[in-house]
Structures are given as structure tokens and as C-alpha cells.
Design a protein around this nucleic acid. Structure first.
Lengths: 200, 200
DNA sequence: CCTTTAGTGGAGTACGTGCTCTAGTATTGC
DNA sequence: GCAATACTAGAGCACGTACTCCACTAAAGG
């Protein structure tokens, strides 16, 4: 009898589909992308698609989980020493670097608009929760170190860092002249100003 | 023979459909909303719907045009005297006030993800262009008056104000605890810090 | 009054969708 | 070699979609 032929090959093909889907979603949105379009881009039949993912939604959830895991891993691998505000800025740089792939901003925007499907909503909620929970402790430490203003609670400050970050991603998606490489510095500057102790 | 019965009634019914569509789009996204759902919400038959709008897309374009016109009108009615930075902040307040309608953030997010349809893309482009062109002259004046930093060109500064504003709207749509009323003050503060002359 | 027509509703239609089913192939253990 | 099974492709299906068509009403000239 024959069992799993090659788990590595399986994983590779799975990633191939995920990659094709990422491109399609970024180009046409989630609802605007048909499974047939993903199959065409990936060069597979629809039977193969549904062999790897039971539903179109499960594919989206798999991609989202990949991103959430990545965020979790980044904060887990984050060095505990050094200036806390440097960690915040390092994360901003990390995100900017990720957005060098021109599909990413479009994907983020496309996925943010998927609403009404409870499982997707839950996945998106968890994604922002992981990010917020990863960032907030560093803001707290920065406040304790006197590096960051204390007139707003750390939770609110963290939310506002994410506000700027989300706006940044959105602009990347819609404005061709606005690129991650050119604006990464200003992003750091904007967040530094947002968090600065000095009253303006 | 009988001609136009009552143009006012026509306009009112049109707005009724637009209002119903706004609710549906905000709840379920553009692609996720069927014309049948809009008809149900508006309490009309589908024949009536297509009597007022030739396609579903044209309805979306009509809503977008309403918003763009509103923005244009706001800047046209803007007083030329007074501190230029006050105009910028007034616009922020104006937007915050508009977002008091809980459907608006969801609608903005839903519409931002509609991509691939050239006419919609064009309408969205014009919308941001009107906003950018409305705001930028005031940033220029503020720079000339020494109220705003000059280490970045006015165009970039304007873009970054819109980055913060877009991020603000996005957060309103996804975070129930983040409301326009509570955060409007911080929005003003964030933009003030972004534009401030002082190096941080 | 009758005629004309903007306005209205809803059954009907053509089509694209996510997904299933089946037949076939490659690859493994024996 | 042979049997068993992971994998692949694509035709086909049930369904929901945007949109059409037609019968009907109400209101305004003449």
C-alpha cells in the first residue's frame, strides 16, 4: 500500500495555491476572486484546489493564520534588552519591509473588507489582538522609562500607533507614488512624534 | 398626456434607495450585498430599483459622487481668513462628525476594497484627489506662516495627514471601543504633532 | 371622460459561482 | 509485478446573482 508520498511536495503545492490566491485577492478582492481564477493562476484544476482546501474561505483563513503566526513569532523572538521604543520602531521597519512585496498592501485592504463571515471576523480580530498585545507591553515599558508620554494610557497609544500603521498600509495600496521604501523613514518619524513626551 | 409627476418625489425615492444601500454595503460589503437585499431594505421591488439605477455599480458611483461633492462643497465654503492650520483641524472635526453615523466607517472600508472595476477606481481616485487638492493649499499657507514644519514638502505632509485620517476611519470600523466622539480630540492632537515645527 | 406615460412590482432568465464526482495517473509497499 | 492509495484534472450541478420583461396603477393633459 502507499501512504503519504511526499509531505514536502504537499506543503509546496499548498504554498503555490496560497501564493496564487494572494495575488488574486490583492488584484480583485476576496469576493471578486473566483476559485477558478485562483486555479488558473496556480495552473491547477479545481479538483486539486479542493483537495488542498475544503472551501474558499478556509484558504483565506490559512493565509490569515500565516500572517498572525508571523507576527506572534516576531514578538516572541524580540530581544528583551535595549530601548523599548527601539522595539516599536523595529516593528514598523519590519512591516515596511514586508510591504515591499507590492501585493501585500492590496491584500491587506481586500481582506479588511471581508465582513459578515464570523470565522473570518474572528481571525481578523485575533490578528489585531496579537499585534496589540505584542506592542502594548513595550509602550508600557517606554512610558516607565520616560521615553513616551503618559497623558494617554498605553492601550490608547498602542491603538494610535496601529492607526498610523493601518493608514500607512492603506495609502500604499491606493497611491502608486507612495512606496514603502521611500516613506518608511517618515513612518518612524510620525510614530516618534505621536509618542513623544513633549507637549506640542 | 402626463409628464414628470413630481421631481421631488423622484429625488426622495432615489435617496431612500441610496440610504438603504449605504446600510447594506456597510454591513456586508459591496460584493456581499445583493440588489435583492437593497430592495428588501428599501421596501421596493427590483423593477423599481433598476428604474432609478441602471446597474448596481451605478448606485455605488452615485453614492461616491455624493461624498465627493460634499467634500468639494466644504472646501469651497471654507473661509479664507483665519489660521490655516485651524482649517485643517476644522476638516478633521468635520470628518469626525460625519463618522458619528455608525454606518459610515463600515461603508468607507467596504468601498475601499472594491477594485478592478475601472469606473469605481476612477471615482475613488477623484475622491482622494479632491481631498488632497482641498487640503494642500492650507498646508502650504501654514508652512508660509511658520505654523507647520518645512522639512517635508506640503504634498507629502498632506498625504500623511490623510494617512492618519484613513487609519482613524479604519479603526472606527473595526474596533467597537474606538468611537469618533471619544477619539476626535486625539485625532486633532495626532495631526498637530505630525505637522508641528519642533523637531522631536 | 379617455389617453398617455412615469412609476411600480415581481416573476422570469441567462449566467457565473463554489463545490462535487468520477475517471484516470503517479507513486509507494509488498 | 501488483495492489492500494495519494493526487490530479475537469466536466457537471445546484444555487444565487444582476438584470429584464411585462402587466398594472396613478396621475395629468385634452
Amino acid at each position: 500500500m502507499a501512504r503519504t508520498v511526499d509531505p514536502e511536495k504537499h506543503r509546496a503545492r499548498r504554498l503555490l495555491i496560497i501564493d496564487a490566491a494572494l495575488t488574486c485577492f490583492a488584484e480583485s478582492g476576496y469576493a471578486g476572486t473566483s476559485t477558478a481564477a485562483i486555479c488558473r493562476r496556480a495552473g491547477i484544476g479545481s479538483g486539486t484546489f479542493f483537495h488542498y482546501f475544503p472551501t474558499k474561505q478556509s484558504l483565506l483563513l490559512a493565509i490569515l493564520a500565516l500572517g498572525t503566526d508571523e507576527t506572534r513569532a516576531w514578538f516572541a523572538a524580540c530581544p528583551a534588552d535595549g530601548s523599548p521604543i527601539a522595539v516599536v520602531e523595529a516593528y514598523l521597519d519590519h512591516t515596511s519591509a514586508q510591504m515591499a512585496d507590492p501585493r501585500m498592501p492590496g491584500f491587506v485592504r481586500a481582506v479588511g473588507a471581508v465582513v459578515g463571515e464570523p470565522e473570518v471576523d474572528a481571525a481578523l480580530d485575533e490578528d489585531t489582538r496579537v499585534l496589540q498585545d505584542g506592542l502594548e507591553p513595550w509602550i508600557v515599558r517606554a512610558q516607565e522609562a520616560g521615553e513616551v508620554r503618559t497623558d494617554l494610557p498605553a492601550h490608547d497609544l498602542t491603538s494610535w500607533v496601529l492607526v498610523v500603521l493601518d493608514g500607512f498600509l492603506g495609502r500604499l495600496a491606493t497611491d502608486a507614488a507612495f512606496t514603502a521604501e521611500k516613506q518608511a523613514g517618515t513612518l518612524r518619524d510620525a510614530v516618534r512624534r505621536l509618542l513623544a513626551v513633549s507637549e506640542v
